[in-house]
Amino acid sequence: MSAISPQVPIRPSDRPSRGDRIFRGFTVGAAMLALVTVLVAIVFLANEARPALSSTGLKNFFTTTIWNGFIGQFGILGVMVGTMIIATIAMIVAVPAALSMALFINEYAPRKVGRLLTSVVDLLAALPSLIFGMWGRDAFQQKLVPVARWLSDHLYAIPFFRLSATDVVLVRSSFVVGVIVGIMVIPIITSIARDVMAQAPRDVCEAALGLGGTRWGMIRTVILPFGRSGIVGGILLAFGRALGETIAVALIIQLTFDINWHVLEAGGSSVAGLIAVRFGEATPLERSGLIAAGFALLVLTFCVNLIARRIVKRGQVK
């Protein structure tokens, strides 16, 4: 295609030129790198996890809470449930806050306030989790003690809020970590929710307002139903992120291997936090156990992430 002479008509062809083929090769190569990484990850992690799995047995690995590197028993039931507890608490904090932020920025706030809040949410996403963890450990969790005390005093009808003894410590708990992780994942939900809510047909919104509806009425009848799948998908994505949160959890929580349903008390667990704290001084066999736990976490976050993306995508097609 380089020398175009006016006499010879150019014939359009489906066959890409040599330059295009080389270029295509480059991009395919780059794109395949991600695929190779995932395959290598699965093969290597599975391989390294084998010693621990064979010494524990696959059934015990998923159904016991015993973690002992010396006898080679690695049960991840406790840490897995702990991870779920923390992520669930995070969602209870993050979902209302993040959705209010999304609606506030999109529908309610004056333009300047909206722009400020957009920056604030983006900055929340940009700050390292290490900072959240340090602030949570040294400043924020002390402020949460009265909240935890109040919950245990007044809402003891909910079994999770009961305390096992009266003199227990109310810091370094799943509750504290959950709240902090919740603050960290607010931007994920807010940005996805804002995107899908902004796609709601503007004429229907205005029709709702024109018929005398209030803003909240319009949001409830038009925007929320329209954006539902995107919102659900965003929440699931944030849940996946909360499951994998490492550093903030590891800094604050007091690690236990048993399931601690008393979420307000010190002691809880998370797979990622466990790996971060224990891997350094672990024996080779325990390292294998930690890699197995990490692999299980990877599979879990992978599934959550996949479902979330599906749901978000389904919402966008509509």
């Binding site: 991600a34 990484t37 995932v38 990850a41 992690l45 996946g240 992120r241 499951l243 994998g244 949160e245 490492t246 550093i247 990622a272 790996i275 971060a276 990490g294 692999f295 976490l297 990877l298 976050t301 992978f302 959550v304 992430n305 996949l306």
Partner: peptide, 8 residues
Amino acid sequence: LSGVPSIV
């Protein structure tokens, strides 16, 4: 890949 926890 975007769901991979940082420690993993």
